[in-house]
Structure formats: structure tokens, C-alpha cells
Amino acid sequence: MARQLDEQIVGRFPVGQRLRVLDVGMGRGARALRLARAGHQVTGVEQEPAMISTARRTLTAEPEGIRERLRIVQGDGRDTGVHFLPGSFDVVLCHEVLMHVEEPDPLLAGLARMLAPGGLLSLVVRNGDAQAMRPGLSGDWAAALAAFDAVPRPPSRGDADTGAADRPGPEVRADRLTALTATLAGIGAPLHAWYGVGVFIDTATDTDATPTADTDPEAVPGVLLAAEERAGRTDPYRGVAALLHLCGVRG
């Protein structure tokens, strides 16, 4: 996900531009901190106090310049209009959050309003077109059959976020590519590019080598990362990934 996001940023904005980034559902802050280290001005929004505390502790170990570039706001992302003016950000991230929101359209519309013209909206969602893949590959045939028709109830993020968000459990909501494509067009940030995330990694047998959302991409075994990156941008493989990474651009 980190490399996919970098690809979109480099392809859309001038080299060296200091971007205004909003990270909704920043979790423990690894993604926000990486962007702050790259020189961008980052605002992280998170509703869980424990995660905010972890992010703040990590931030205290950073140099002053990086600490000044990362602001943390407590919230669930649906109140962005209270905290920020429309068009305040060049990049808005909403990674692995929609799966925990029962009605995502109002949240997405609010996030799109936060984007400046030409701004990038980056979403990571559970892939509703491939819910049967993981239980099927693991030999859980009953779960695979049930997944074809399941409409899971979304739990709270506090109950569901275990630090392995790239392996979402069965009790989170999923989104379909076609439906989200239509939604993005309707909110004025039409789909520009999309990737699969977790095509092969979810089936890796060495769990110590399996990355999570907070893993530094450079720490992932090279051959696994290369295969995952290639599959995540190649049809038909990306279509059966556990997660989808969608990138919309504000008109």
C-alpha cells in the first residue's frame, strides 16, 4: 500500500512539493509518520484513545521538525467539516476504515469535500468481490459457501482493529469495485487507478514474514513483495485480492 500510494503521489504532484495530507483512521500512526518524515504536513484523525496514545509516544522519539509536521486529532472521520475547511488538503487517506462503517457514502462525500482541486483520495477497502477466496484457499468450505451471500455486520473499530488490518475477519463489511467506482464519480473524485492488496500475502505460510498495515515495506522479504506488487496491478489477480486500494482524483 505504501508503494502504491507513493506511485500515485509522484505521478500527480511536482517533485519536492510539500503536501497537505489528511489521514482518517490513522491507527498507530505508522502511515502518517512515514509521510511526515517525507516532508509533508500531515493531520491524523483517530477515534481510539489507545491508538492515539501509541502514536503520540512514537512521535515523541522523532526530531522536532517531524513532530511539528504531524498533528493528531481525535475523531471518527465523519466530523471533518467541523475541524477543517473544504479544499484544505492535497491528499486524503482513508485506509481500512470503510469496512467498519455501516453507511460509508456520507463519510466519503465529506472526505471528497476536504480535497483541493486535483487532490488525491486514497481508499483501502475490503474486497466484496472476493469474500469466498480466503476461506476457500484455507479449505474452510462451509465458510466459503456462506461468504458468497454474506452481508456482515460492521463492528466498532475498537473491537475489530487487532493490528492485522490487512487480514480482516468475517465480521467486517465489504465493498465492491463497481459500486465504489460509481460513488467516487458521484462525489466528484472519479476513480483514477486501483490496485489489489493481499493477493498472495494472506496465504503466506510464514506468519513472521507476513506484513501488516504497520510494516515497513523494506522489511518484507523481497521476493514476496515483488510478487505481491506485480499481482496487485495485474488482471485478473488484483480482482481477487483481500483488499482493494482505490485512488480517486478531485475534479
Rank of each mutant, 00 (worst) to 15 (best):
N127H: 12
H100V: 02
R126N: 04
A132N: 06
I72H: 09
Y237M: 13
S138A: 12
V45Y: 10
G39E: 10
G139Y: 08
A112Y: 08
A50V: 08
T181K: 03
L111R: 07
A193R: 15
G25E: 09
P86H: 11
V172Q: 15
R113Y: 00
P63C: 09
E68Q: 15
G118E: 08
L33H: 05
E102R: 15
R238S: 00
L120S: 03
D208M: 00
R153T: 13
P155R: 11
G81A: 15
I66G: 02
P168M: 05
V42F: 07
V197K: 00
R176W: 04
P190Q: 09
R173N: 04
F89W: 08
G128V: 07
D202W: 00
D105K: 06
R18D: 11
A132E: 14
C94G: 07
G222E: 14
H95I: 09
I9G: 00
D90K: 03
G232Y: 05
M114H: 04
V15H: 14
R230Q: 12
T80P: 01
D216N: 14
T60A: 15
G11K: 10
A241L: 03
V151T: 14
D76V: 04
V125C: 13
R69A: 13
A112K: 06
G75A: 12
T234H: 04
E64A: 14
L115Y: 08
F13T: 07
V92I: 05
D216Y: 04
P14E: 06
G11R: 15
L111M: 13
A189N: 01
A142N: 09
D214R: 12
V73D: 05
D235P: 11
P217M: 07
E96P: 03
R134T: 10
E48P: 01
M1V: 11
R134L: 14
A226M: 05
I201E: 12
D208T: 06
L111S: 02
V197N: 04
V91L: 15
I52N: 08
S88C: 03
W141M: 12
G158Q: 14
A185R: 15
P49W: 10
A50H: 10
F84Y: 06
R31N: 10
H83P: 00
G81W: 01
A2F: 10
G27D: 10
G136P: 05
G188F: 06
D206Y: 10
V21R: 09
L120H: 04
D79K: 12
L225W: 05
D23R: 08
A165K: 01
A241C: 04
R71G: 05
L93V: 07
L246I: 01
V249K: 11
G239C: 05
L107M: 15
L19P: 06
D90C: 05
Q17C: 08
V97L: 14
A174F: 05
E7M: 02
D23P: 02
L243G: 09
F148V: 03
G232A: 10
